[in-house]
């Protein structure tokens, strides 16, 4: 790719990202749905715990249950929206598929990182038994986990949007893809509550990085086939 092409491609990625941000800010559909989802779920957890302190091992798993279903309720939005408004065709004409993919991926990454930050803050404030002993492990786990989450969820969202089933199949299709990530991430979160040093959890981080890289590369290769009619 020549540098001029590269520049134009980066501009399209940025354009699509900004378009999604702008249309999101206009309606605040995904953000409000996600925020309400997280609040309701944490409220249900608090009610069901009924002031009992659950062990941190259980709570670190529950945290990721909230994040998984929260993400599933909002992340398919970017692609489903294009199909619902009938703008997918226009986008196909205006931008190369790879630019569309990376624009949407960037949007979803921002959304997941924000969602996770919000969830974690609420969770730390409200759920009594959940104490993080090594903050660095926890922060890295949340960040790398969010990246992996977004990379897997984005490509599945692209499939779902084309499959005219909208929401129902999204968690079904995503769960097997996300499960290796979830197992590793829940394990790392548990280590963070136990106060494990950073070096001990290194394997988990390597896993998360390789997972994200592999899935993003594959999505980049496959996206053209899914996206184009």
């Amino acid at each position: 790719m020549r540098s001029g092409d590269m520049k134009r491609w980066l501009l399209s990625v940025r354009g699509i990202f900004l378009k999604d941000v702008r249309s999101e800010l206009r309606t605040r559909y995904a953000v409000s749905a996600l925020v309400m989802f997280v609040i309701t779920t944490i409220a249900i957890i608090l009610f069901s715990l009924a002031h009992e302190a659950a062990p941190p091992e259980v709570l670190s798993g529950v945290l990721w249950v909230v994040i998984f279903f929260g993400a599933m309720s909002g992340l398919s939005r970017t692609f489903v929206m294009e199909e619902e408004r009938g703008t997918a065709m226009t986008l196909q004409l205006l931008a190369p598929p790879s630019a569309v993919y990376f624009g949407k991926l960037l949007f979803n990454v921002v959304l997941v990182v924000a969602l996770n930050a919000f969830t974690v803050i609420l969770y730390l404030l409200l759920v009594a038994g959940f104490v993080v002993r090594s903050a660095d492990v926890f922060a890295l786990t949340m960040f790398l986990g969010s990246l992996g989450f977004a990379s897997a969820a984005t490509i599945i969202a692209a499939i779902i949007a084309r499959a005219n089933t909208k929401g129902t199949l999204y968690p079904v299709l995503s769960f097997p893809i996300l499960l290796p990530l979830l197992v590793v991430v829940i394990d790392a979160t548990r280590s963070a509550t136990e106060g494990a040093p950073l070096a001990e959890v290194g394997g988990a981080f390597q896993f998360l990085i390789s997972y994200t890289v592999v899935l993003t590369t594959l999505s980049y290769l496959l996206f053209e086939y899914i996206w184009k009619d």
């Binding site: 490509i155 893809i177 499960l179 290796p180 896993f207 592999v214 594959l218 496959l222």
Partner: peptide, 15 residues
Amino acid sequence: LSAAYSIIAAITVPF
């Protein structure tokens, strides 16, 4: 779509 999904799923199998 199912071809794309099976490729994505296959990539996670080695993991």
